[in-house]
Design a protein around this nucleic acid. Sequence first.
DNA 1: AACCATGCCAACCGCACGATG
DNA 2: CCATCGTGCGGTTGGCATGGT
Length: 247
Amino acid sequence: MKTVQEEIRKGPWTEQEDFQLVCFVGLFGDRRWDFIAKVSGLNRTGKSCRLRWVNYLHPGLKGGKLSPQEERLVLELQSKWGNRWSRIARKLPGRTDNEIKNYWRTHMRKKAQEKKRAMPPSSPSSNCYSASCNPTDVSIPSTGTREEIFYDTTEWNTPASTDQKSNQMEKNEVIYSMDDIWKEIAFTEGKYINPGFDAYGGVGCDFSCPPVSSPSWEYSSDKIWQLDDEENMLPTMENNLFAHHEV
DNA sequence: AACCATGCCAACCGCACGATG
DNA sequence: CCATCGTGCGGTTGGCATGGT
């Protein structure tokens, strides 16, 4: 027998790898990650592939900074749901849980620091510094010894959390970002996957991607960011904010 | 100009859950 | 009903970029 995998690659993805991954997701859809990882010849784990796809390669991603509206929405939802990033992300079309998580982190860190500065050490529970003493100010629990405390939101009684998975992610056809790769794809469009692609040889394939036409890609456009049924109870902002997005 | 601190982002890890045999 | 596998999620970390001193 041979070594199962020579060595699993880690670390930053190369353009070539991205391109490969996009191709194979186009072919097989974005669910069988383990399979894709093997077949593609990328020496990556399925997990790694998925992550790369979801956070970076997915055509529906917006990229760029969060708009003020998005930021507000994040704050609002976070205060409502706690650190259910994937769930929150679903409310922000084109944003990933990772993005939101990162934003939240830095945002909260900033806030925490501001507060620290503003707060004389002995200052009691006077709190509410900014004129806007809103819930999104995510109070730093008074236990805040660790700096990360700001991050802790476990106290939110989140609704029966584990429903997240109910929402199956599907694909999105809108092409936004990932310029190079998608440009490439645009180039090669029309060059359907060549039959020379032998699934298990994988590597030999010249990666002329099929025009994104894998079965799974043809589902409704941004399922990822579609509402969870129970999330419809979602109140205020986002419906207004993103009502237009569905177009 | 060099160094340091901070911010931001991409990626990995471990755990939990659901599906399948 | 149980074990195993695959996937998704949240948390954490490391590296690069930028700004300040």
